[in-house]
């Protein structure tokens, strides 16, 4: 139960920050900008060692938001460099996130094939 509350708080807070970025900044920030920003931001925080503690405390609250995707990319690259050297830097990020990306492509394609937009 405690895990659930922590996940709620961390996940909610991450989304809250995104909402405030969209509402309170003078720039026209679209969802596309938010998603790109969260992935790259998450990766950078992760590389600096700041995201792992958030994952340990908040669990899915930190991995489900897209910054968690960035975290996986960064950790994948680092792990892969450890085991494979320089070449690992190129493939590591995508290897670590390949299941998620493949799932998104496949499910996306299937849904787009079988459903029609409602308008």
């Amino acid at each position: 139960m405690e895990d659930l509350i922590k996940a709620f708080l961390v996940g909610g807070a991450l989304c809250l920050i995104g909402q405030l970025l969209m509402d309170l900044t003078p720039f026209n920030i679209t969802p596309g900008h938010i998603l790109v920003g969260y992935v790259t931001g998450g990766a950078i925080l992760s590389a600096l060692g700041l995201y792992q503690p958030l994952v340990e405390w908040g669990g899915a609250g930190a991995t489900v938001p897209l910054s968690g995707f960035g975290h996986s990319l960064a950790q994948g690259a680092i792990e892969s460099v450890k085991s494979k050297g320089l070449l690992g830097a190129l493939g590591g990020g995508l290897e670590a996130t390949s299941v998620g990306i493949a799932a998104a492509v496949v499910f996306g394609l299937v849904v787009a094939t079988f459903f029609n937009p409602k308008g």
């Binding site: 659930l4 996940a7 709620f8 996940g11 909610g12 995104g18 899915a60």
Partner: peptide, 9 residues
Amino acid sequence: GGLICVIGQ
């Protein structure tokens, strides 16, 4: 956002 993460948890 929090609830979606709870479902994830």
